[in-house]
Computed example of a mutant assay.
Amino acid sequence: MNPRIESLEKLLGGPRDGALLRFSLGNEYLKADAPRQAADCFRAAVDRDPNYSAAWKALGKALTQAGESAAAADAYNDGIQVAEARGDIQAAKEMKVFLRRLQKSA
């Protein structure tokens, strides 16, 4: 297994376990071409912090790579709402682009 993943997994359940840790672990799983595990981590990140725009965007990406287009579209839609509510205009724009691409490919 990837040593970075192993080191992050050791922190799960500890005092540092939170949205950022789950997001970081999800990114490592994406790099390791494990989109389903990445999606699980990103879901855990948004469960811990529903306003984490970057985690919503990454969740959509992971679900797309895992072949779960409907779930990816839902994640992007939720993420767009969160980003717009927070004033995170760039993240909202990016997710709208990814959502349109996903819809075109379907």
Rank of each mutant, 00 (worst) to 15 (best):
P50G: 01
Q103G: 04
P35I: 00
Q90F: 15
F98M: 14
E94H: 08
E6L: 12
A73M: 11
I5P: 15
K10F: 08
D49T: 04
A75W: 14
N77Y: 12
A34W: 03
I89R: 12
Q37M: 02
F42H: 06
L30M: 09
K61F: 14
F98K: 12
L25P: 15
V46H: 10
R22T: 04
M95L: 11
Y29W: 02
A92G: 10
D40I: 04
S105L: 07
F42G: 00
R101V: 15
G26Q: 01
Y52V: 03
L11M: 11
K104I: 12
A44E: 05
L11H: 06
A44K: 06
Q65D: 02
D33K: 10
D88T: 03
W56P: 11
E28D: 11
W56T: 08
L102E: 01
G13H: 01
R43P: 10
A72I: 05
A72N: 05
D17R: 02
N77S: 12
Q37C: 00
G14V: 01
D78M: 14
T64D: 04
A54W: 12
N77P: 00
Y52L: 03
E84H: 07
R16E: 13
G79Y: 06
E68K: 07
G13A: 02
R86N: 13
L8G: 05
R16G: 09
Q90A: 13
A54Q: 13
L21Q: 02
K31P: 10
K61T: 15
Q103L: 10
L25T: 05
L12I: 06
S69R: 14
A70W: 09
L102C: 06
E94Y: 07
A73H: 08
Q37N: 02
Q81N: 14
C41W: 00
N51L: 13
I5M: 06
L99A: 09
Q65E: 04
G13L: 02
A66R: 00
A55D: 11
N77E: 15
D17P: 13
D74I: 14
E6R: 13
A71E: 14
G87N: 03
A44H: 03
Q103H: 10
D74C: 11
